[in-house]
Design a protein around this nucleic acid. Structure first.
Lengths: 294, 294
DNA sequence: CAATTTCCACCTAGGTGTGAAACT
DNA sequence: AGTTTCACACCTAGGTGGAAATTG
């Protein structure tokens, strides 16, 4: 059996389709699992649809939104949703809305009850907990980008008062003109079927206070309140994303979860937060006190 | 400055185009750098074009190929190339051929001169050196998949004879019907501009002797000779790769490099190989003898 | 006997909070 | 005084070849 030419090689076409590529990515980069954070409770979804979300008509939408971004929704397990117009949908059609469920919402809620703090550093610091979601009702064959960003909750600077264990407003802040950075999930773009089959984890995203950061980390100001947001963006092959001046106004849906709100710090303020982080983040195991429980 | 709605968020569209996505991937997964292997010497390219490479006409192509896969080309720095027909190219057109350069060819050559061995294990073992290439002459705006696989060089089983420090043929092998697995580069698909700007590294690929392996590792037989191969596959949006029975016969080019040939082992046979691996692979630093030089 | 498997010490690589020092 | 930075010990996660045990 000599002279095996390249033609003798029967390609595995499966290896070319999305699911296998992404399976390999998962294997390579562990993109879909968050270590030590295996809780499975989810937030349910509430839908608010806007048939056409004109970027120039900001007030209309804000006025229509019962839960405007920037207001804290204290009802845990509920998702805030913003959906842009879908060009090929119409009122008579039975197309189901894209749904996004927060994974590990119970852990998020435990932090939220205390007052979640996230450390930001010059080099960039991961979030803990990390943002992990499941997506439903995508078109299995359609390609999507999935991304996240972090929005300011208000324009206040905060200060932690130790003796009362409370965060107090310490002044106003101009958020200046720093456009929030978008963190594209590394599996993007990918077909809906693949996105829906896995937990989509943003555990690699890093937060920084360095405005000159150039590695794609999310830039935030310390001592401010923020809330992460997830975007599901339908890929339009006719539309080259690199050639348009702003994000598409069609085929895009955005989601956020009240219990994921946090305050940025450069050092933890509330010791209960420190304890919970040490308890739950496997990388902080070295600080766990064996003589402590729960 | 209250009531910052989601519309106040000016998206960074750059974050949606390929270059930024892949930059993030690089940052996250370190896909494009191989630790401790920073040599920059490259192999040059020789082109052999086939206007239509019919998968059923195996002999024609083999007959036309001066350097058929399976024959060892002892000229270092030369690349073997197989290019399938390109539907929208014609003889009068000035379209330049895709070129692929091997990175770190000097290190590969040092191993090759001794007789490269690669360990394979049940769980999967990385290659060292890893396959790293640069690609030229892609269409900057066109999307491509880039993948690798590993082809048997012949159908012989080999045995290492210690007293003569040589590999000897020990028998024939039926390579049976195990279709070679394709390892898709985790950045795929991606536009040509991005592929060309970076070193494309396959350092995450793993070799295994476990035929039941299910995590996408490349399955090989021990004590056999193989040569890795790189594929550049032009993405055709009209053609859904998941819906066709075999790889496209158009818009695909394959490349291999003689100095990357290796013999699979479950334990190193030639001690010179062991020494060179320990010397050059940072993960084997623990075995370096400080009292040794060169 | 040759080949393979398994466990291991020793690395790389990088994610934690700490506590002292520096900054403002 | 409040906030930020830095080096550090201590982790997770996983890639090395060695050596002994196991396989056929």
């Amino acid at each position: 059996m000599q002279g095996l030419s390249s033609r003798a090689h029967a390609f595995s076409v499966e290896a070319l389709v999305g699911k296998t590529i992404k399976r390999m990515k998962k294997e390579n980069g562990k993109d879909t699992s968050s270590p030590g954070d295996t809780e499975t409770e989810t937030s349910s979804v509430r839908q608010e649809t806007y048939e056409h979300d004109d970027p120039n008509d900001q007030r209309r939408k804000a006025g229509n939104t019962p839960r405007r971004l920037g207001e804290c929704d204290s009802e845990p397990g509920r998702e805030e949703r913003t959906r842009t117009g879908d060009s090929d949908s119409n009122p008579g059609r039975e197309e189901r809305e894209v749904r996004v469920e927060l994974q590990g919402s119970d852990l998020w809620t435990r932090f939220h009850e205390i007052g979640t703090e996230m450390i930001i550093t010059k080099a960039g610091r991961r979030m803990f907990p990390s943002l992990r979601v499941k997506v439903r009702n995508l078109d299995p064959c359609q390609q999507y980008y999935i991304a996240m960003d972090v929005l300011p909750v208000d324009s206040k600077r905060y200060r932690y008062v130790y003796h009362s264990s409370q965060w107090m407003v310490a002044g106003n802040t101009d958020h200046s003109c720093i456009a929030p950075r978008l963190y594209m999930h590394p599996d993007s773009p990918c077909v809906g079927e693949t996105w829906m089959r896995q937990v989509i984890s943003f555990d690699r995203v890093k937060l920084t206070n360095n405005e000159m950061e150039d590695k794609g980390h999310i830039i935030l100001q310390s001592m401010h309140k923020y809330k992460p947001r997830v975007h599901v963006i339908r890929h339009n092959p006719r539309l080259d994303l690199s050639k348009i001046p702003s994000l598409p106004t069609e085929g895009m849906a955005s989601f956020s979860f009240p219990e994921t709100e946090f305050t940025t710090v450069t050092a933890y303020q509330n010791q209960q937060i420190t304890k919970l982080k040490i308890d739950r983040n496997p990388f902080a195991k070295g600080f766990r006190d064996p003589g402590r429980n729960r």
